[in-house]
Nucleic acid binder design. Structure first.
Lengths: 235, 235
DNA sequence: GGAGCGATTTGCTCCGGCGCAAATATGCTG
DNA sequence: CAGCATATTTGCGCCGGAGCAAATCGCTCC
């Protein structure tokens, strides 16, 4: 991983949170950010932690997962470079509603509530960007709710895979490769099923040549076929 | 229903969207709102409609439901007096992601995208309020996702009932009454189960005296007991 | 009061997929 | 390279709850 190549205002300018901001504002954003490097599998924050900050991934991937009192968990989403996380809790509980764990070695920036509020008052565009981001995630959450309530496990896994491809897909000769390591358990927790069921489904698809996994890296070889499964009412 | 009693700046000042705004700004808000009365069961907008506006309920209740391509649907939430709806799509698709139907005769205000943006630029507090509102809904959606993925139908119905009581509960001598008519199908679509299963569960609870329904109006008589069911890992 | 319609209840069957358990594969560590 | 830990695969039994069907209830409108 490059050491400091990303710690420039230019990088912050490219983040979804700071879209359409004048250069002067970007300078302030960059200046007030606290940047940290976190190791693979390290926790950035835990569900229930107080003293929340707004975070953004500079490089790497973070898994956001919510755990129930019974230990069962759901992966809320994966956060890639340029995306923000943990920001919603600033405006609600002042407690993180989920865990954040780095899937790979990750470089992460964050701002305190006071800093972000100050930035937003000075630049309403930031607030509008936040609304845009959270809004998209809310729509996605509602779609997933509908899927969970009405579709079978196979279709949900298909949707999960497609969503991952859209969010973190990298085109290769072999197909679309998900840019970060993905355990079967992760896929299960995204799709809302069990490790066992997810394993069965994915293995079947591997046998059929729809996708491939090598060292926890998943490549979608026939997106169209998986899309067919996702839409197929017969399951 | 009172005819025009609510069409005053005072009412808008009490809405979650316009919290902490100076009186002058409230005047502008009130002036630019388009107010409409909609009949029981009438649709305010349909999933996929373009030309979106931001809406707020002045009086009445609106059901927001998302329908899948197969016809199955999930109730995203019920919108009561003072709450906003349809606002998220302004910042994302410019298409409504769900249907909005009035459950009872309802008075509803709305603003165009341009109007709301202008208000937000002038008053960043409005944008912050929007973030607060959407953030809370996102958290709720994520909780429901976890429930749908990990809990059985009984617990989900219990959570749904408790959530409704919290949002729209009115204390009566008999217990907490949900302020709007609620069909079994509605409960099923909130909890993510079928009409039949929801009916069985609710009827069993009625027999046990945990709740009562009279003319589609649900009263929670023993919230603590329902909360116990909601948390009970045995189901 | 009767007809008609939607909502609700309830019985029954069937199956997807969860839970348990064990075998196997794969990657790390020393 | 051996040994261990973690991840994955796979078999099997069982059950929650979806799906179908039918009866009953309760309104509303003649």
């Amino acid at each position: 991983m490059s050491k400091d190549a990303h710690l420039t205002p230019q990088f912050f300018a490219g983040m979804e949170l700071f879209r359409d901001l004048p250069p002067a504002a970007i300078e302030k954003v960059a200046a007030s950010a606290r940047v940290r490097r976190v190791a693979r599998e390290a926790r950035i924050f835990n569900q229930g932690d107080a003293g929340v900050r707004a975070h953004a991934v500079i490089e790497g991937v973070v898994r956001i997962a919510q755990t129930g009192s019974d230990g069962a968990q759901v992966v809320v989403r994966f956060i890639g470079a340029g995306e923000i996380f943990g920001a919603v809790s600033l405006f609600t509980d002042a407690r993180y509603p989920a865990d954040a764990v780095a899937l790979v070695e990750t470089l992460e920036a964050s701002w305190s509530e006071a800093e972000l509020l100050e930035l937003m008052i000075a630049q309403p565009q930031i607030a509008i960007n936040v609304i845009h981001i959270i809004g998209k995630r809310l729509q996605e959450a509602q779609e997933r709710m509908r899927e969970l309530a009405t579709q079978g496990a196979t279709r949900r896994v298909a949707h999960a895979v497609l969503r991952l491809g859209r969010q973190a897909g990298r085109e290769t000769a072999d197909g679309t490769e998900i840019a970060f390591p993905l355990r079967r358990k992760d896929v299960a927790d995204i799709a809302g099923t069990t490790l066992h069921t997810a394993s069965r489904i994915l293995t079947a698809w591997e046998s059929a040549g729809l996708l491939a996994t090598r060292n926890q890296h998943l490549t979608i070889r026939q997106p169209s076929e998986i899309a067919r499964i996702a839409e197929d009412a017969s399951d």
